[in-house]
């Protein structure tokens, strides 16, 4: 039934692509703008506290028809900061 049987189904691919597109349509924020927002946010935060940029997760999430900018920013412990 599906020639590309290893691939994602057409329905799954449609849904995943729409999830992304709708988040950006609804916020009027392009993926590029979101990236530079993340960069500036990280710069600002690291002026005050020590963070590991690699561990940071910032993204848009859907919550019904509302969108949320969700950031998960693990902090380095102050002990480690003193030691380092």
């Amino acid at each position: 039934m599906n020639f590309f049987s290893r691939k994602k189904s057409a329905a799954t691919s449609a849904k995943e692509r729409l999830q992304l597109v709708l988040v950006h349509d609804r916020t009027d924020l392009t993926p590029a703008e979101l990236e530079s927002l993340k960069d500036e946010l990280l710069k600002t935060i690291s002026r005050y506290i020590d963070i590991d940029p690699e561990a940071v997760q910032i993204g848009l999430e859907r919550d019904g028809r509302a969108q949320r900018l969700v950031a998960d920013i693990p902090l380095k412990s102050s002990a480690r900061r003193k030691a380092g």
Partner: peptide, 11 residues
């Protein structure tokens, strides 16, 4: 929809 070729109502 059953063949996963179309978005379902749920989707």
């Amino acid at each position: 929809v059953k063949q996963h070729d179309m978005l379902s109502a749920e989707d």
